[in-house]
Structure formats: structure tokens, C-alpha cells
């Protein structure tokens, strides 16, 4: 019986015309799916570029234009700094997907202006956990006073980590001299992503060495700006 039934069903096939029609439909759908996949990849790439530009522009401006500032938040998350400052940025939502580099930088400059307006209060806040007391530099980020005077260096950074318990790790880079010290704070989430930073009078070799040790994604930008500033200062001194 099996043989007879097999012989019959073997002759029953999807008609050629229908087969071609369905195949064409599948190819079209598959093509659209691949297109969407490529579009998603492209979109992800654009977002990555935007983040990099955002950090670069702000990092450069903070270092060049003002003694203190706040680097942007990423992903629209609120970042609560040890200093007490917090930031939220939804820049990605407001940028068209086909924005040019120039448009991005204009937009990011606007964000930077807004961040600068807030920077002054953060400077004061940072003073509250890093200050000179009786000729000693005291770090007090979490209720425990640390005398870090002897760790201050213009070359080697002192790096202190704080884990507030929200899954983030805050890295405090401190360096300079007792009369001219500076600090920078960078935040890393538990999945290894760097989320932004804060700086106050962070400049010099200790700062460059600090960002290199942390392997920040935008370390190169910071270092290039540092070197440019140093070169400008040198040429200014010569004049």
C-alpha cells in the first residue's frame, strides 16, 4: 500500500507558477529583511559616531575653554557624580539620523553651552569632597577622610575608586601640587561602559597618565587637547 500511495503523492507537486510566485515573494521579503538589518547596523554605527563626537567636542571644550566642566551623559541616563552633580542628555533623540558632522557639532555645542552653565555649581561641589585642611589635601568622597597629600604628583596620578552601590564605579583621578591640584571623575557601569565624567583643573602629565591608565574610550582626544594646550602655553611663555 505504501508504494501505491507514494506513487500517487509523488505526482502531487506545488504548481510551477505558484512555486515561482512564492519564491519571488520570499526573495523580496528576504531582501527587505536584509535591508532592515543593514539599516539597523548603519543606525547603530551612526549612534556610535554621535557619542564619540559628543564626548570629543565636550571634552575638548571643557579642557580648552574653562577650568572645570561636566562631560556629557550617555544614552540619556542620569549620571550622579560623587561631586553631587547630575546630568541627563537626550541628544540622540533630537538629532536627525542623516545629520552631517557639522550639524552634530553645532548641536553638541549647544548642549555644551547648557552644561557650562551648570559647571560652576559642580566646581563648588567638588571642593566639598577634595579640599585643603591645615596644609593637607583631604579626600572625603564617602564619609571617610583620606589624607592624600603625600600621594600628590605632577606626573603620577592618584586614582581612587568609589562604588556607590548602583552598579557603577567612579574613578577619581587626582594630581598636581598642594597649591595647584586638580581632579577628574569618570564613571563606569557594571557592563564596562564608560558613562561620562567631571573635571576640575584637570591638566598636566598626571591627567594624561590617569586617562591612559583607565583606558577611557576618548583618552586620545583628551591627550591631544592636553598636548595642544601645553604647546600653546609654551609658545605663549616664549612670547
Amino acid at each position: 500500500m505504501k508504494q501505491q500511495i507514494n506513487s500517487v503523492f509523488e505526482q502531487i507537486r506545488l504548481p510551477a507558477q505558484a512555486s515561482q510566485r512564492i519564491r519571488a515573494r520570499l526573495e523580496m521579503e528576504a531582501s527587505e529583511l536584509m535591508g532592515k538589518g543593514m539599516e539597523n547596523m548603519k543606525r547603530q554605527k551612526n549612534i556610535s559616531v554621535r557619542k564619540k563626537v559628543l564626548v570629543s567636542v565636550i571634552a575638548a571644550a571643557v579642557i580648552c575653554a574653562v577650568p572645570a566642566g561636566v562631560y556629557a551623559a550617555w544614552h540619556g541616563d542620569i549620571i550622579q557624580f560623587i561631586s553631587g552633580g547630575g546630568r541627563i542628555a537626550h541628544y540622540e533623540d533630537n538629532l536627525p539620523s542623516d545629520a552631517t558632522q557639522e550639524e552634530m557639532e553645532d548641536y553638541l555645542s549647544d548642549i555644551l553651552d547648557q552644561e557650562m552653565a551648570q559647571a560652576e555649581s559642580d566646581v563648588d561641589a567638588s571642593d566639598s569632597y577634595l579640599k585643603v585642611e591645615n596644609g593637607r589635601l583631604i579626600l572625603n568622597p564617602d564619609g571617610e577622610k583620606l589624607d592624600i597629600t603625600d600621594k600628590l604628583s605632577e606626573i603620577e596620578p592618584y586614582i581612587h575608586t568609589v562604588e556607590p552601590g548602583d552598579g557603577t564605579t567612579h574613578y577619581l583621578i587626582i594630581g598636581g601640587t598642594i597649591d595647584n591640584y586638580g581632579l577628574a571623575e569618570f564613571v563606569q557601569t557594571d557592563d564596562g561602559q564608560w558613562q561620562g565624567g567631571f573635571s576640575n583643573n584637570a591638566t598636566g602629565e598626571w591627567y594624561i597618565n590617569g586617562v591612559q591608565q583607565l583606558k577611557l574610550p576618548w583618552a586620545d582626544t583628551i591627550i591631544q587637547n592636553e598636548q595642544r594646550m601645553q604647546a600653546e602655553n609654551s609658545s605663549g611663555s616664549e612670547r
Binding site: 502531487i12 507537486r13 512564492i22 519564491r23 520570499l26 536584509m34
Partner: peptide, 21 residues
């Protein structure tokens, strides 16, 4: 699955059609 869809369609179009029929 889109990469294999052509081969799977060739292999099983008739089986699917026969069962549906």
C-alpha cells in the same frame, strides 16, 4: 533564516503543499 530559505523552499515546498492539500 533568510540565508537558507531558498534551499529549504526547494527541499520542502512539495511536502508542505501536499500536506496543506
Amino acid at each position: 533564516m533568510e540565508q537558507d530559505i531558498g534551499a529549504l523552499f526547494c527541499a520542502y515546498q512539495d511536502s508542505v503543499f501536499r500536506l496543506a492539500l
